[in-house]
Nucleic acid binder design. Structure first.
Lengths: 244, 244
DNA sequence: TAGTGGTCTAGACCACACA
DNA sequence: GTGTGGTCTAGACCACTAT
């Protein structure tokens, strides 16, 4: 498996930034120096640096150089359209998923309302803690309608439900609705997360819709305050998508 | 004033898409064709196309071509960008805006970096507290490039800068980038907000771009934890199942 | 003035889609 | 096979920052 040169350089530089080989507020070597070090053309270096810049790791200033920014937080494009697995890979940090609960339940009133589901349909309930660099900082509570996802295994949950739904079940996700707010920590948060003394968590509710506009998944993601970061692009669209 | 070649091509292609010269779900000419038409190198064409792609106007598919996406040609309602005034109206609660600062400044390094602005351009700095039902719960810090917004009055700031920019100045906003995270309260927060004992605020940074991809406004919005709420719709950005 | 990042060129080879 | 977009090269000139 061949990795692109500019991606390899991006990952290598990122690793060095994370290791502290390049300190925040210091300058990276110039593009010419880097092209010599990596024995490649300057344009290729520039592709790697532009990636670092777009992801918020460095700031390029014309005539001066590329400055390393201070990043202690993680980018979470919290949309259900990006999986934790992809994020973990992108962040290049040791990450782990711990499945605490996986069961088929009769939804209570709250879940039924959130999922807009019929009376007798069962629902998958999954509770997972997400660990990055040894700290459990996210608690994900997923609820999926069984009529769309007949089978769900521990294995799938440890890997990526999203990948499974898209690639195996071939369900086509069209859009998601998000709600974000801050909540006091619950007993469940304290049980499953390393809260580090914080009394609040950032809650992200995510409603995921299929192409026929049917709601098939509802996720509540609870993030430790200090590690939470959300990045998003909002393009103008004609109408905010109307929900059924 | 010389415009970059790739930006000129980007704007020209965008214009043609909006005019309907390229229809949604149809293919653009290939990169080789375009490089001949515009008498430039393929890499320059690629920079223009990548901009179109990043802004959601086309989708590039390896081995096939670049497909025009269906983005509303005459789209005015904004998604992701909602002004405080609209929010207040929607919530139907007594709301007020208090303008604490309104001045034309020489941007410092931080603001210059955020706005990606030229050296000697002045910048409007506006600091406003937002009060709902008698409680000051949001602190808005706006920075707008003067070259786009020559005049700004206290009156406009108390009403809606956004409305003024769109309706009076007729600037056409194409997309915005948002970053959200939690920060410790600052002295400024304590001075202008009713913090109710909370030690953290939710910070929303908003970068607003015009149609030619130039950044004209940067806003930092600081929300009291318990009153913060964000709702958004996210459509898929990647549409792998397009076209016959 | 020397060094930096930003743009641009005219090639080249590759991986992928499609007929 | 041909044609597409993706990557990469080795130059070049420009605008900007520093000294």
């Amino acid at each position: 498996m061949k990795e692109n040169k500019f991606l390899a350089i991006y990952n290598d530089l990122l690793l060095q930034i994370r290791k502290g080989a390049f300190q925040p507020n210091e300058k990276l070597p110039s593009e010419n120096e880097l092209s010599q070090q990596y024995r490649t053309s300057r344009e290729t270096i520039r592709k790697a640096l532009n990636l670092l810049s777009e992801h918020g790791y460095i700031q390029k200033i014309k005539g001066k150089g590329s400055i390393v920014l201070d990043v202690g937080k993680y980018d979470f494009p919290v949309s259900g359209l990006v999986s934790f697995k992809e994020l973990a890979q992108k962040m290049n940090k040791p990450a782990r998923t711990i499945v605490h609960e996986l069961e088929l339940i009769e939804p209570d009133e709250y879940i039924k309302r959130q999922l807009e589901t019929e009376n007798k349909e069962k629902v998958w309930k999954v509770i997972r803690a997400r660990e990055i660099e040894g700290e459990k900082i996210i608690l994900d509570k997923d609820f999926l309608c069984q009529k769309f996802v007949p089978i769900l295994t521990r294995d799938i949950c440890e890997n990526s439900i999203y990948e499974y739904v898209e690639n195996e079940l071939k369900l086509r996700i069209s859009f998601a609705k998000k709600e974000m707010f801050v909540d006091r920590v619950t007993a469940e948060d304290q049980k499953y997360l390393d809260l580090n003394g914080y009394e609040h968590v950032v809650v992200v509710k995510n409603f995921v819709y299929l192409e026929d506009a049917s709601l098939f998944q509802f996720t509540e993601s609870r993030h430790r305050l200090d590690k939470f970061r959300f990045v998003d692009f909002a393009r103008r669209t004609h109408q905010p998508h109307l929900l059924p």
